[in-house]
C-alpha cells in the first residue's frame, strides 16, 4: 500500500489498513534497533524538530532516538527555551521553525487540538506527540504493536483500560485504535474519572475494576495524578489503591496470559502494585522499546517512505 498521510494528528484520522501498515513497518524498524550498528541512512539530510511545549522525558527521548537511528538531524525545543515564553504565538513560532527548512515538526502541547491548528498553517509534516487530553497517537500505535507482538492479532481481544479516563489522551487514542482494529474495549474507574458520553466511542463502562479484569487479555493501567484530589475526582491515594489499584490478589482472577501495560510514568503503589509492575505479565518496558520503532516508522512514512 501507498501511505499518503502528511501528518499524524490522531488515531481517528487513520484507517485500519493504515494502522496495520504502520505496525508492519514498525516491526521492520524494530529489527534495525536490534542490530549491532543501530543506524540506517534513510533520512539523512532531513531535519526533525522536537517541539515540546509540555515537559516530557520518555516521548521526546524516544523520538530523538528514532530520528537519529534513521540518520535525520533532530533539534529539541522546549517551552522554557523557546520564544513562546516571550509571548510569541504557536503559529509564529512554528512558521519560524519551518523557515529553517524543517521537514517534520513533532509537537507535544498542553492544549487539545494544537497540532491540528499547527498543521493548517505550515507545510512541514506534523506528528502529534500528545495534545492536552485529546490524543497521543504514537502511544496508541506502540500499545497496539506491543499487544499484536504478544497476541498475534488485535481482533476479538478484550482490552481493559483502568484509571482516569477523563484526563487521559492515551486512553482516548487507545480506545480509538483498539476499537478500530476490532478489539472490545472496556473502561473502568470511579464515575468522576469517566467522561460524559464515552460510550459513544464504542466502549463499555464499569466502575468495578474486578469486572473489567475478568476475561481481559490486556489490562492498561493509567497514571493517577495526585492533584486531581483538588478537583474532587477521588478521596485519597490510599482509597484509590484499595478500590481501583491493580494488585496481585486482583490479578488472580485474570486470564493466565493477561498482559499488563502502563504508558508511564508509574505511580508505584497507587494505580499499580510494584510486584505487578515488575511481574511476569508486565510488558511495560517492551512498550518503551516499541515506542522507538513506531516513531521511526512514522518519521519514515510522513517523509514519503515507500
Amino acid at each position: 500500500m501507498r501511505f499518503v498521510k502528511k501528518n499524524i494528528l490522531d488515531i481517528a484520522s487513520l484507517t485500519a489498513e493504515e494502522i496495520t501498515f504502520i505496525l508492519n513497518i514498525s516491526e521492520k524498524m524494530k529489527e534495525i534497533s536490534e542490530r549491532p550498528v543501530k543506524k540506517v541512512p534513510i533520512l539523512r539530510g532531513k531535519t526533525v524538530v522536537l517541539f515540546f511545549y509540555e515537559p516530557s522525558t520518555r516521548t521526546r527521548t524516544s523520538f530523538d532516538v528514532a530520528a537519529k537511528r534513521l540518520s535525520a538531524d533532530s533539534v529539541s525545543i522546549s517551552a522554557s527555551t523557546s520564544s513562546m515564553v516571550k509571548g510569541e504565538t504557536l503559529i509564529d513560532t512554528a512558521q519560524n521553525l519551518e523557515a529553517m527548512q524543517s521537514d517534520v515538526i513533532v509537537m507535544r502541547h498542553s492544549s487539545s487540538g494544537a497540532p491540528h491548528l499547527l498543521s493548517k498553517h505550515i507545510r512541514a509534516s506534523v506528528i502529534n506527540a500528545g495534545d492536552g487530553t485529546h490524543a497521543h497517537p504514537t502511544q496508541a500505535l506502540l500499545d497496539m504493536m506491543t499487544v499484536r507482538e504478544n497476541k498475534g492479532e488485535l481482533r476479538g481481544l478484550r482490552i481493559a483500560i483502568i484509571g482516569d479516563i477523563s484526563h487521559s489522551r492515551v486512553a482516548r487514542s487507545d480506545i480509538a485504535g483498539f476499537t478500530k482494529m476490532g478489539a472490545d474495549v472496556i473502561v473502568a474507574g470511579p464515575p468522576t474519572m469517566i467522561p460524559k458520553g464515552v460510550e459513544n466511542m464504542g466502549v463499555s463502562v464499569t466502575h468495578d475494576i474486578d469486572r473489567a479484569i475478568d476475561g481481559a487479555d490486556v489490562i492498561m493501567m493509567l497514571r493517577i495524578q495526585k492533584e486531581r484530589q483538588k478537583s474532587f475526582l477521588f478521596s485519597t491515594e490510599r482509597e484509590y489503591a484499595r478500590v481501583f489499584g491493580l494488585t496481585r490478589e486482583r490479578l488472580e482472577n485474570a486470564k493466565d496470559d493477561v498482559l499488563i501495560m502502563h504508558p508511564g510514568p508509574i505511580n508505584r503503589g497507587v494505580e499499580i502494585a510494584p510486584d505487578v509492575a515488575d511481574g511476569s505479565h508486565s510488558v511495560i518496558l517492551d512498550q518503551v522499546t516499541n515506542g522507538v520503532a513506531v516513531r521511526m516508522a512514522l518519521l519514515y512514512l510522513v517523509l514519503g517512505g515507500k
Binding site: 487539545s112 487540538g113 467522561p195 460524559k196 460510550e199
Partner: peptide, 13 residues
C-alpha cells in the same frame, strides 16, 4: 459543552 463531543475532542466540558 459537556458531552460525547467534548470527550472525543479531549476538551473540558
Amino acid at each position: 459543552n459537556e458531552g460525547a463531543l467534548a470527550t472525543r475532542m479531549g476538551l473540558p466540558g
